[in-house]
C-alpha cells in the first residue's frame, strides 16, 4: 500500500464522515427538542440538492458564470428552501401530533419521505435518471508523490467543518441555543421560563433541514452526480450515526458520522473483499456496536445533550 492510496481513502473518508455527521446532527436536534425521529430527513436532503440544481439551471440561463456566485447561490437557495420545508413539516405534521404515540410520527414521516422521493422522480424533468451536479468548484490539485489533493475537496471539507462549528456555537454559546437545550431537557419547565416552545421547535426543524440540504449539496459537489433516491442511504446512515453516538447528543452525532465513514473506508481500502461490501460491513459493525452499547457510544453526559 502506498501513501497515495492511503491518502486518497483518507480524504474520501473524511469527506463522507463530514456529510454523514451533518445529516446525523439533524436527527439528533429533532430528537433532542421533540423526542421524535423524522424519517423523511434524508429525502429532505435530496429535495434540497434538486433545489440547488434548479437554482444552478436558473442562474445559468441568466448567463451568470462566476463559479463563486453560483456556488453561494446554490447553497443559499437550497438551505433556505429546505429550512422553509422543515418549518412546514414541523408545523403541519409534527406539532399537531405532539400528544400522539411516537410511532405515528415515525410512520407519517416515513410516508412523507416516500412522497418527496416519488414526487421528484415523477415531476422533476427526467427525474428518474441520475443528474450531473455542476462541477464548478476549482479543481486545481496539490500533489505530493502520487497523492493529489484537490482544492474543491479542501473547500468542501472546510465549509462542512464551519457548519458544524457554527451549529455547535449556536447551541452552546447563544441565548437561542440555551433555549433549545432547555426545551430538550424539560419542555414544560422551559415553557414556564417564558420560552416560546412552538418557535423553538420550528427553528430547530429549520436548522436541521438546512444543514441536511447543505450536506446534500456538499455531496453533489463532491460526486458530481445526484439522483432521486440518494436520500435513502444518506438518511439511513445519518440515522445510524446519530444512534451510535447516542441520539440527542451533538458530539455523538458528529463522532458517529465519522465512525461510519471510517468503517466504510476501512472496508473499501483494507479488507480483502470487494469495496461494494463497504455498506454491508459498516452496517454490520453498527449492529454489533448497538448490541454492545444500546444507548450509544457516548453515555449521555450531562452537558452533551442538546
Amino acid at each position: 500500500m502506498d501513501i497515495g492510496f492511503i491518502g486518497q481513502h483518507l480524504v474520501n473518508g473524511l469527506m463522507q464522515g463530514m456529510i454523514y455527521s451533518l445529516v446525523a446532527v439533524g436527527f439528533t436536534l429533532f430528537f433532542g427538542v421533540l423526542d421524535v425521529i423524522k424519517f423523511s430527513h434524508g429525502d429532505v436532503l435530496m429535495v434540497g440538492v434538486f433545489a440547488g440544481l434548479t437554482a444552478f439551471f436558473g442562474l445559468d440561463a441568466l448567463g451568470i458564470e462566476n463559479p463563486y456566485i453560483l456556488v453561494i447561490a446554490i447553497i443559499l437557495f437550497s438551505t433556505a428552501l429546505m429550512a422553509l420545508l422543515g418549518i412546514v413539516i414541523a408545523k403541519i405534521l409534527i406539532l399537531p401530533l405532539k400528544g400522539a404515540p411516537p410511532l405515528n410520527i415515525l410512520l407519517i414521516t416515513l410516508m412523507l419521505g416516500t412522497l418527496l422521493r416519488e414526487s421528484v422522480r415523477l415531476f422533476y424533468p427526467n427525474g428518474s435518471n441520475s443528474k450531473a451536479f455542476p462541477a464548478i468548484l476549482p479543481t486545481d490539485s496539490f500533489t505530493w508523490g502520487n497523492f493529489s489533493l484537490r482544492l474543491d475537496s479542501v473547500m468542501l471539507f472546510v465549509a462542512g467543518a464551519a457548519v458544524i462549528v457554527g451549529t455547535y456555537t449556536l447551541i452552546n454559546r447563544t441565548r437561542l441555543g440555551l433555549a433549545i437545550r432547555a426545551v430538550a431537557q424539560d419542555e414544560e419547565t422551559a415553557r414556564t421560563m417564558g420560552i416560546n416552545f412552538g418557535f423553538i421547535v420550528l427553528f430547530t426543524f429549520a436548522l436541521g433541514s438546512a444543514i441536511a440540504a447543505f450536506a446534500g449539496v456538499m455531496n453533489g459537489f463532491y460526486y458530481n452526480e445526484i439522483n432521486f433516491s440518494m436520500g435513502l442511504l444518506l438518511g439511513a446512515v445519518g440515522f445510524s450515526a446519530a444512534i451510535i453516538g447516542g441520539l440527542g447528543n451533538l458530539y455523538g452525532a458528529i463522532l458517529g458520522g465519522f465512525l461510519f465513514a471510517g468503517l466504510q473506508t476501512l472496508a473499501a481500502a483494507a479488507l480483502p473483499f470487494s469495496s461494494s461490501y463497504k455498506d454491508v460491513f459498516a452496517f454490520a459493525v453498527v449492529i454489533a456496536l448497538m448490541a454492545w452499547r444500546p444507548t450509544g457510544l457516548i453515555a449521555e453526559k450531562a452537558y452533551a445533550r442538546v
Binding site: L178, R181, A182, Q185, D186, T192, G194, I195, A304, R305
Partner: peptide, 25 residues
C-alpha cells in the same frame, strides 16, 4: 414567574445558564 414543584432545575445546564433561562424574556 413560577418555581415549580420538585425544583425542576435544568440539570444539564450550569447554575448561571439556569439563571439566564429564568430571565429569558
Amino acid at each position: 414567574a413560577c418555581i415549580p414543584e420538585g425544583r425542576m432545575v435544568f440539570s444539564k445546564c450550569t447554575v448561571e445558564e439556569n439563571l439566564l433561562l429564568g430571565g429569558y424574556g
